[in-house]
Amino acid sequence: MDVFARILRQRAVEPESVRDVDAAWDAFGEFLQVEVEGIERLENDGDGFIVEWGRWGWNDDQPSMSFGRLLAVNGADHRDAPDRQPEYWKVELQLVFGEDRLPLTDPL
């Protein structure tokens, strides 16, 4: 969604190369508050929040964390069809960490 990119740019953060994680997180928090029209009702899971983490091939298997807003967009043109399924859109803030940037943990 262009709204999230616009909010990032207002904070002087380029969407494709985020370096300031705090500013990006604040922008994502603001984006979560934006009302979106044309989505399923809340009771139908029309607007949700998802967190994923791991190592994915598209990030060269580097440690990654993704915060996403998942929207179930209802197709207004086929809204009355009995087998209608919403289209899902995911807007995410994906953070990729280099191996040398992993936090240290205390051994138990």
Score class of each variant (00 low, 15 high):
E40V: 01
P107N: 14
G68V: 02
S64R: 04
G57H: 08
S64Q: 09
P107F: 10
V91C: 07
G46M: 01
H78S: 12
K90N: 13
I7R: 02
D61R: 14
P86E: 12
I39S: 01
L8M: 10
F31V: 06
L104G: 13
N44G: 03
P63S: 13
L70F: 00
P86G: 13
V18I: 15
G75S: 11
D45R: 02
R84F: 06
D60K: 13
W53H: 15
W58G: 01
E37W: 02
G54M: 07
P103Q: 10
E35W: 02
D22I: 07
F28A: 08
E92C: 07
E99T: 05
D61H: 04
R55V: 13
E16Y: 09
P103R: 09
V13E: 04
P63T: 07
A81G: 01
V3M: 14
G29S: 15
F97W: 09
E43Q: 11
D106N: 10
R79Q: 09
L104T: 09
P107T: 11
D100H: 11
W25D: 04
R79S: 14
A5I: 02
K90A: 08
V21R: 14
L71W: 00
I50E: 12
W25Y: 08
R41D: 14
V18E: 05
I50Q: 13
A5E: 06
A24T: 03
E30F: 03
Q10K: 14
D83P: 00
V36F: 03
V91H: 12
G68Y: 00
I39H: 03
L32N: 10
E37T: 09
A12Y: 02
T105P: 01
D77V: 06
V96Y: 01
I50H: 08
D47F: 05
G38F: 01
P82G: 11
V18S: 03
I50L: 11
Y88N: 06
R69M: 04
F67Y: 12
L95Q: 03
A12K: 11
N44K: 13
T105Y: 09
L8A: 09
E30L: 10
G68E: 04
W56Q: 06
E87R: 15
R101I: 06
R69W: 03
D83M: 11
G38I: 10
D83T: 08
Q33V: 06
P63Q: 10
D45N: 07
L104V: 00
V36A: 04
E14L: 14
N59C: 08
V73A: 10
A12F: 05
L42T: 03
E92T: 06
P103S: 07
N44F: 07
E14Q: 14
